[in-house]
Design a protein around this nucleic acid. Structure first.
Lengths: 377, 377
DNA sequence: TGAGCACGTGAATCGCGCC
DNA sequence: AGGCGCGATTCACGTGCTC
């Protein structure tokens, strides 16, 4: 019985927190405060900004705003919204893992306040993303431009969080092999996807399209990650997370939304692992030391290496370094030095001669990796 | 000698404030404070972005990226940037006419702070506009989405400013007869348009494309309006304003920028009136009362009007109202009432029969306007 | 003269893991 | 936990030179 086996018995694979893949009923901040520290990988939040209609906001002095037609002066209403934003953003930050990231969506009514509060709290912006609507509502009065987009902020917990998940290669592959831009084009949520009440009205005023959530989740989470949505609403985040093999946690106050979202998510069939596989970049490949090529007999000490244009020639030494005269070092350092550059990828810079043509030593690394796979199988 | 003539002698047409069409050297706030109250129609501002760059960034080919590391873009903290923003925004608001509007451009580094400060000061957001760059700089490390856009805020001075200029029809005409959206696509400023130093380096690190300013000025100003740019830089705002027959005022601290911008603007040839004639929005056209069509003989009392599908028929009365049986009123009120709507544009709703086909009474309004122009000439 | 290639460059908050 | 070293990473377009 191996150590790995024993550990897996102590902490069974199937053990999972009871709040995973559930919708927590209640106030956003109170519910967040019941979750453990550093327990979620990604947060997606679609916070309310229509203060009057929400009716749950409090003034900075905690007095409740009780009437729909409550007369606020402008400053008071912005201050109240900022206080509300600060409260849930702070609570959200505690439950976020150190390398976790957060997505927040909003319009020009609220996104600037949200962004400012986030920066004040220490969130570090990675991108702002524009959701361009392919079918926005027209402007009826002809006094402004057609409001055809919403803005999302993608941020890490701290400036120092460098280990966040970003599936760069997958995004690039999905965009015809060009890196994914900060402006995304999607239709708004309509048709069969749009949840309706029994009376045929739309269930939720701002139901987000699943395609939008799918890109968010595919870009910034790994399978098995936990995605939290503190304003769960109709449950788009949960539905997409489940389909894509991620865990979700929802927080929602309204019973009608919880009920509809639960049913919606229950009907979702997760994709199987094969369909979930993402393109992996070179960073995911196992590291191979140049010296190990010599150990494996793929490269012999004394071999001459040169760059593609044969401007420089270096000698392979038994310890895995290469040398030009007295100048010795790793394939990368020597490659950088001869070119007068800060850095160099020696694997693609240096070549060896085979059958009269030059081949990059990266070819040998590829063979070494294949051998490793065969040996492991 | 008419009263009109006498007034024009007291205030000659050619009299113009000495600061019009000039570049004021100095600090932004101090210079703004020297301008009169409520003296400019539109402000375009491209303030420092407060980029926070750590090390040097290299492209994959190891070349160094020329970063914006200018002294004017450095701030101690978010609080310092906010204070700077509040100061110039406040000074700008005083010189803005009550129906003036302001455009501010920024990136995710600063735009959320700018937006919050603007709302706190009482500016009222009309739109946020996304400038999608057709040729943005790539992300070189593959750790984020490509930063492919910048954000602009368009705001009126007050929530109550209803008389601001928005050339809706001109924008619509420029967009294949579809409403102009809030996401605009333009290339960044390169090639011959980009100002260079004698050494061949870029004169200004963030010169904006003229096409972007042209759309801004065409959408939100009238010919002869005054456009102020408190961060004038290479003078794109002044160049485009002059070409489009608007006045400009620039504020700039750096002599080198002032000198280059002055030369640039001096070389500009304004478009003639014919080229400038914009598609006039219907709202800007002289108001025509339905009754005046009767006075002008274009419409006879007793004429039958009907809607495009001939569902309702109304009778034109000599007083300029129309009636269906006992239900009488303006073309708009009666049109709304029969449809059970709050409002109705009677000009496009009601039709009259001519040569066997139905034509909207708006045709007659068009003829009446032409007659008015001829009479005035 | 034209097609084609090489090269330069733009508001950028741009690693990661091992020891 | 800081230091060190591997080695991964780019799109559109204007200019100017070559063939």
């Amino acid at each position: 019985m191996s150590a790995v086996r024993r550990i897996s018995e102590l902490v069974p694979q199937s053990a999972k927190a009871e709040w995973l893949d559930t919708i927590i009923k209640g106030d956003c901040v109170a519910a967040l405060n019941r979750l453990p520290d550093q327990s979620v990988d990604v947060i997606f939040a679609d916070p309310p900004y229509n203060l009057q209609l929400e009716g749950t906001l409090h003034r900075p002095d905690q007095s409740r705003v009780d009437a729909v037609d409550d007369e606020w002066d402008q400053f008071e209403s912005f201050a109240a919204y900022d206080a509300f934003t600060r409260a849930w953003m702070l609570a959200a930050r505690r439950v976020l893992k150190p390398n976790g990231t957060i997505w927040v969506i909003g319009s020009y009514h609220n996104i600037f306040r949200v962004g400012s509060v986030m920066q004040d709290l220490g969130y570090w912006f990675l991108n702002d993303i524009v959701w361009r609507k392919s079918n926005p509502m027209p402007n009826f009065r002809g006094r402004r431009f057609q409001n055809a987009h919403e803005t999302m902020i993608w941020a890490s917990r701290d400036k120092s969080s460098k280990g966040y998940t970003f599936n760069y290669e997958a995004m690039k592959a999905a965009n015809d092999d060009l890196q994914m831009r900060s402006d995304w084009l999607f239709p708004i949520c309509t048709g069969k996807e749009r949840l309706k009440t029994d009376e045929g009205d739309k269930l939720h005023p701002t139901q987000k399209p699943e395609a939008l959530l799918a890109r968010i989740i595919m870009s910034s989470t790994k399978p098995g990650d936990v995605v939290l949505d503190p304003f769960f609403g109709s449950g788009t985040t949960g539905a997409v997370a489940k389909r894509l093999g991620r865990h979700f946690v929802g927080i929602e106050r309204e019973d009608s939304y919880i009920e509809a979202a639960s049913q919606r998510i229950a009907d979702i069939e997760p994709l199987d692992n094969l369909d979930l596989a993402q393109v992996q970049g070179k960073r995911a490949e196992p590291r191979v030391a140049f010296g190990s090529l010599i150990d494996a007999g793929l490269m012999k000490p004394g071999t001459l290496l040169c760059d593609a244009k044969r401007r420089w020639t270096a000698n392979v030494r038994a310890d895995g370094t290469i040398a030009i005269g007295d100048d010795a070092g790793s394939i990368h350092r020597v490659g950088a030095r001869v070119q007068g550059l800060e850095a160099c990828n020696g694997w693609t810079f240096w070549h060896f001669e085979e059958a009269g043509s030059l081949k990059p030593i990266d070819e040998l690394r590829r063979i070494a990796r294949l051998n490793m796979q065969v040996a492991a199988a």
